[in-house]
Simulated scan of single mutants.
Amino acid sequence: MSTLFDQTSLGPMTLKNRLWRSSTWENKADSKGHLTPELVKVYENLAKGGVGTIITGYAFICEEEQPNARMMGIYDDTFIEEYKNFTKNIHELGANIVMQIVYGGSQTDFNSGSRKIFGPSAVENPIFKVTPVEMTKNDIDYIIKSFAEAAGRVKEAGFDGVELHGAHGYLLSQFLTPFFNRRKDEYGGSIENRARIIYEVLEAVREKVGPDYPVFIKMHSTDEWGENGLTPEESLIVVKGLQERGISGIELSGGHLSSDPDTAPIKPKLLKKEKESYYRKPAAMIASAVDVPIILVGGNRSVEVMEDILENTPIKYFSLSRTLHAEPDLPNKWKQGFRGKPRCISCNKCWGRDTNICVLDRKKS
């Protein structure tokens, strides 16, 4: 019987367990996206806490396009040396580390009135009220090149892999979602066309980092926009296209910050086990139809539920975000036999303008 603490391999990566830390915006980098002691400490605690593979908070790939304050950056070569020291430190503490890279688009209220923001179409973001500039082919080529160059820096800096952010209402996911993508050219219409930019990003990244370097993507199993959204069946088509083009693994999530808050990637309180792992059904359907490893994210909170999914579906890896935000040593506790409730109650109060910290820790300070 498989367990969460099996050692596995994923390409050149050796994973000491099946647990991943899903990308989480920490709001602790400096104003230009460089590391701070406060941010480094977050990752040291995660590595010491026992999670096998850490995915960083999203890092912006274009200096002029920072979708959130104090997020990590990877837009030029000045980051490489500091990240080399950073990744070496995390490896010495026993964890793999993958960098997530992103172009944000209209899902932002950070300096949004003072910069040019691209989108697949000039559709106002329902929550943030930002109307992006519809991208030309030259703009699309620029973004593809920016992703590839950022991925090259990620590899040079010693990260174990790179993850493309194609979920949660940011630019690449907007291309997949008909609500945002109303184009009439080769990047709009059919799901194959809407996925074209993602395929081209992956191909450009692969050309930059080589055929064996781990390249992942976070994308939706379903995005819950109804008839204007991405269905699980369409997601499967995209996943198959990514598999054909050499993706190493796919982290399946769902929801948009820009749609109904109840379907956003940050869910309300999860106090019952039947509410956990809430994208398991569409993710399992997709995983059963492909060979590429699937990493399930969203409400993974207990060993019993995850090991049931591990035993009864093709899903083999699990990402956690808020749970590790509140309790970075939870993987070690689970390995030692702890089966009680996690410290995190999914109250969503860890998000803040000034810093992102568990509300229980904030009350202590």
Rank of each mutant, 00 (worst) to 15 (best):
E234M: 03
K273R: 13
N193A: 13
L252P: 05
P342M: 09
M99Y: 04
I191S: 08
T131M: 00
A157N: 01
N111P: 02
V292L: 02
F86G: 07
M72I: 15
A167R: 03
E186F: 09
D109P: 01
S31H: 14
W334I: 13
K333L: 15
T231M: 01
S9W: 07
Y83A: 01
V102M: 09
Y199D: 11
G50N: 09
E82R: 12
C344L: 07
Q7F: 09
E149T: 05
A287H: 02
S258I: 03
L330H: 04
R280V: 14
I191Y: 09
I294S: 05
I295K: 04
L15S: 07
E134T: 00
V154M: 01
V130W: 00
G161I: 07
E200S: 13
E38Q: 15
V51H: 09
I55V: 15
Y142R: 11
K240E: 08
G57V: 05
W225M: 13
A326R: 06
R362T: 06
E233V: 11
E65N: 15
M13W: 06
Y213P: 03
K273V: 09
F175M: 12
G33F: 10
R322Y: 05
R206F: 15
K116H: 04
S190C: 12
P265Y: 03
Y43W: 14
L270F: 04
F79Q: 02
T24S: 11
F159R: 01
E203L: 13
R115C: 00
V305D: 04
T3M: 10
A157L: 03
P331G: 10
K341T: 12
I61H: 08
K116E: 10
S22I: 07
N332F: 06
S173I: 09
I266V: 14
P67V: 10
V133P: 00
E200I: 13
E327G: 07
N85D: 12
S146F: 00
L310I: 02
W334D: 10
M306D: 04
H165Q: 11
P12Q: 06
E200W: 12
G337L: 09
K267T: 11
L39M: 13
Y317M: 06
W225Y: 12
V42W: 11
P126L: 00
L310Q: 03
T36P: 12
I97N: 10
C344S: 04
S173E: 14
W334S: 05
L10M: 13
I315F: 03
I294M: 05
N68C: 14
S114E: 13
T53A: 15
F110K: 03
G337S: 11
P178Q: 15
A122T: 00
P261A: 04
K363D: 13
G33W: 08
R343K: 15
V297L: 03
S173N: 15
R245Q: 07
E311I: 04
I90Q: 08
I247G: 05
H34N: 14
E251L: 10
N181S: 13
G229C: 03
I315C: 07
D291R: 14
K116Q: 06
E134V: 02
G229I: 01
T36F: 15
S235R: 01
S31C: 12
F159H: 02
Y213I: 05
Q7D: 08
I74Y: 05
S190P: 14
L15C: 13
L10K: 06
S258C: 07
G50H: 10
R70N: 14
P67E: 08
V238D: 05
